[in-house]
Write a protein that binds this DNA or RNA. Structure first.
Length: 307
DNA sequence: TAAAAATGAGGAA
DNA sequence: TCCTCCTTTTTAG
């Protein structure tokens, strides 16, 4: 899936494009028709992310206290795509990549978009299975393939959020619950980092890469790690996910480990240390990177650097 | 055409 | 430990 950094970028982009506007909300595919009807014509007042969950607050135009929350989760396939006119961001897409190392798609050039007499863009016919479409003054956004897309009361949304562990991308996050939960669990740290009620927003790549960078074997039980080890893993994820938010892509290697390759170039084979690099030489020590299945997901690690 | 793969997660067994 | 759901793109036959 798009890991937490993608969802935070989505929150920012949706907020930039739509905040303060009355939106047309629809479900061209039909599977979100009831929810879309509840939101149609409301005003987007806030867009934010916690872990991999996206929260969009919609207020009634006449009553700011009357708020409904659209909560969505992309799962492993979901993605949002955007089309906007010249006053907004150009066309782009954020969500599930279809190839390893694929970056967010996006053109710097604004596409030709039609406007109505009032100056609002006229959305084009939806392509494929569009679960939800949000249309505003300067563009529209299509959501495809989410694992979850629901309309909730603010209380319901808060209850769902309360189940999530701290998010490394939240500047105000308190890592204490993560340190406590992980530190008293005998389960492997490689499993714990993916548990969203332990820590939220980390997916398969950040798990593999943060463990590599800290030299921690993924199968180490949480109880065998010191508080300093766990704090180090938290800090590592804060740093890596922050880069992900800024760049729009998961880049976890240090410059000295990708010699001769400028930042601006595509270098999927050197963007990560171990993720999807099984069978290849470790960028640091030359040992063969390993892969095994752990709870149905690929786990990648260097047996020497992470002994 | 069909199948496989992809940065999840919830629930049954 | 399975099984299932969600969608698009790429690869295989």
């Amino acid at each position: 899936m798009p890991e937490g950094h993608s969802i935070h970028r989505l929150a920012r982009q949706l907020g930039d494009l739509f905040t303060g506007q009355r939106l047309s909300v629809s479900s061209p595919q039909g599977r979100f028709s009831a929810g879309a009807q509840l939101l149609d014509g409301r005003v987007l007042t806030r867009a934010r992310a916690h872990g991999k969950h996206l929260y969009l607050d919609f207020a009634a135009p006449q009553d700011p206290q009357d708020v409904l929350v659209m909560r969505s989760h992309l799962g492993i396939y979901g993605a949002w795509s955007f089309v906007g006119d010249e006053t907004s961001a150009a066309a782009s897409s954020i969500g599930a990549p279809r190839r390893v190392g694929e970056r967010e798609s996006g053109s710097s050039q604004a596409p030709a978009v039609a406007h109505d007499d009032a100056g609002r863009v006229v959305p084009e016919a939806p392509v494929g299975a569009v679960r939800a479409r949000l249309a505003g003054e300067h563009g529209w956004a299509d959501l495809r393939g989410p694992a979850l897309c629901a309309v909730e009361t603010p209380e319901e949304a808060r209850a769902a959020e309360a189940k999530l562990g701290p998010d490394p991308l939240d500047p105000d996050a308190d890592p204490a619950p993560f340190l406590a939960k992980a530190g008293r669990s005998r389960r492997a740290i490689g499993v714990l980092l993916m548990e969203q009620d332990v820590v939220s927003g980390i997916g398969n790549i950040f798990r593999a890469e943060s463990l590599f960078r800290r030299g921690v074997n993924p199968m180490t039980p949480g109880t065998s790690l010191t508080p300093e080890d766990l704090r180090g893993l938290w800090d590592e994820n804060v740093a890596l996910m922050d880069v992900g938010v800024r760049v729009g892509r998961i880049i976890t290697t240090d410059p000295e480990d990708r010699p001769g390759i400028p930042e601006s170039e595509a270098w999927p084979e050197h963007a990560n240390y171990v993720y999807h690099r099984h069978g290849q030489d470790c960028l640091r020590c030359g040992a063969t990177v390993l892969k095994k299945d752990l709870n149905g997901r690929g786990l990648y690690w260097c047996p020497v650097c992470q002994a």
